[in-house]
Nucleic acid binder design. Structure first.
Lengths: 346, 346
DNA sequence: GGAAACTCCGAAACCGTTTTCGGAACGCTA
DNA sequence: TAGCGTTCCGAAAACGGTTTCGGAGTTTCC
């Protein structure tokens, strides 16, 4: 109740008054406002006793410098914008967390905007960010498919995360899905698997294609090929995983490893295998992508997965943004290396 | 590449110059900066031809008003802080989305802070928010257990969401877990179930207790009691759900309904039931809490669940914050009504 | 004992807006 | 033609800080 400033007009509440300003501090300390400023910022030569008086005054008045006023002179606001395409998607989050982390608690503040995949909304948020004079912007996509860059002349650096910009002079950070595919294969190979099937997700996704590419290339390098000859594309769902796995074991009972497009498909496949009496991982290994904790650690056996290191992706994006703000960075696409998380299913 | 301002010092790039300011617009339009301001804000009496010239100049220079400067005079920044306790927890997200939604795209911008359940971090973020003179703050907890209020004198309104403040003079918005429990019971009762078991989560959580309370009261009102006499408390995991469900059907084979502490327990229970050859929902209904899409729609049959309407909770929090900024709002705890989402398992 | 070199401190300009208030130009009436 | 109202516009004062630059006071040194 000491919060709102909705005092009707009762003059009694002098204590409720406006927030203390530098002038107030200076007056209380008996110095000029210039000196107060210097004292608080540890600037120049200010006698120690003077500084102490100023600091004391500042704490007494609970003084917090007005960042807006400060930004006016410095030109920098110490804020960045983060435009996400879909917040409820689970990919934005770790990236956002990584970025938040890299910016350092308190130093840089993050404006969060959810564009929901809508270009109009995106434009709207962008304008708001520019009005607020953010020092830079990170654009986080919902899928790894390349997206058109932000339109208009943007007077601050922009980093594209997860979904790269189609403009190669922009700076983008994406997961290395091809490598992720290769890693999945070599993981299964090192577990002694040779007859591997690939149950993928929606073929329209770049991620599906790139993972398939990595898988194919790694198998070829090992002189092998996919059971069934090629990947099965479908949807990113458990249901698809269940059905596709059923068809695989019906047609190719010799299969001893399954690489699934994501952890949901992986979970669906596991369920089918178990229901059909297959022993995972003894008879068949199963591995997915994304390392979505709730999917991978829920079932028994727990599911191995390729983690795309999205938090690190977010941190990298933030670091790149920093560098861009300071000077130039090399344009182009950076790929974040994935890592294998081994659990009971392989 | 036209983004960074890292021009070493080459004076050639006059085009790369600093962002256009109101003065530039005024000069270009041949008017005073006061008039330019008025024209852009549709203020006072400005001759139409003059306004048109100013607007033309503004668009030509791609002028965006400096919000910081504007805030200096208005005193309001049009920003709010959102301090979340754990971003990766799935409860903050919908709340955050609801809030973002209610604030309206562009009008109000949201500073996102992740305190990770650490009071020090929280303090740090809070200071940063106050420096930036946010107009208000929403604090989102990770659990519904009451939490101590923010420390220190906060000169702006604060709304506590999901986790209420222990201070009853604060404003809090929480899900109505007691009602959620009641709803679960009445849903099963209306499906003709009478012998209901309750497999809950960690008893240390207020949510677990409140749901149990609601369940108990609704059953009592119907003249029934829980199979086994009381709720089974354990963990919020699928594994616990599997084990607990097994014990329930072993000991009480007459059970015809299971209320599970959350969707993960629910899923675990479903798996056990199916593996034991029970038919869901014919033989036994299953319902959980939270309505976590990936958990509820993944398995077959899909799982019914009580949705706590977290997005609406977020919207409500945002609206309350608005009202607090304008004037006063009644302190205390608001409870958001849940809703039953019926799927195949009941 | 006076000049030079320091050490502290404050007046004032500035950042980019909004807003008040007075003045100029104009049309109209007497 | 003087007087009066309107209508537009601009000078200037905020807003809350930072920073430059010069002035006053104190040492140090010859």
């Amino acid at each position: 109740m000491t919060t709102t400033t909705g005092t009707t007009d009762a003059p009694e509440g002098e204590s409720e008054a406006r927030r203390a300003t530098l002038r107030d501090v200076a007056t209380l300390a008996g110095v000029s406002i210039a000196t107060a400023s210097k004292a608080l910022n540890e600037r120049a030569h200010v006698r120690e006793s003077t500084r102490d008086r100023v600091l004391a005054a500042a704490t007494e008045l609970a003084f917090t410098p007005n960042q807006a006023a400060r930004s006016l002179t410095s030109g920098q606001t110490g804020t960045v914008g983060l435009i996400a395409d879909d917040l409820d998607g689970r990919f934005s989050l770790p990236i956002l967390m990584g970025a938040e982390d890299a910016f350092g608690t308190g130093q840089v503040s993050v404006f969060l905007c959810d564009a929901r995949g809508d270009a109009i909304r995106e434009r709207y948020h962008l304008d708001a960010l520019l009005r607020r004079k953010v020092d830079g912007i990170i654009v986080v996509g919902a899928r790894t498919d390349a997206r058109p860059p932000l339109v208009g002349r943007i007077p601050v650096p922009v980093i594209y995360a997860y979904a790269p910009s189609t403009d190669t002079t922009d700076v983008s950070v994406v997961p290395d899905d091809v490598q992720a595919g290769r890693d999945a294969v070599s993981h299964l190979l090192s577990a002694g698997r040779q007859r591997i099937a690939h149950i993928s997700g929606d073929a329209a996704y770049t991620a599906a294609q790139e993972r398939a590419t990595g898988i194919a290339s790694a198998l070829e390098a090992a002189g092998l090929e996919l059971v069934g000859g090629s990947a099965q594309f479908g949807a990113w769902s458990e249901q698809w995983g269940r059905g596709a796995a059923q068809r695989v074991i019906d047609q190719y009972p010799e299969v001893d490893g399954m690489i699934c497009g994501n952890d949901q498909i992986s979970r669906g496949a596991l369920e089918t295998l178990q229901r059909s009496g297959w022993n995972v991982p003894h008879q068949t290994s199963v591995i997915g992508f994304d390392n979505w904790e709730v999917m991978t650690t829920g079932p028994s056996p727990t599911l191995s997965s390729i983690d795309l290191n999205l938090e690190q992706l977010g941190r990298t994006a933030a670091e790149l943004l920093f560098e861009s703000i300071q000077g130039q960075v090399e344009p182009g696409i950076r790929r974040i290396t994935p890592r294998v998380v081994t659990r009971e299913s392989s």
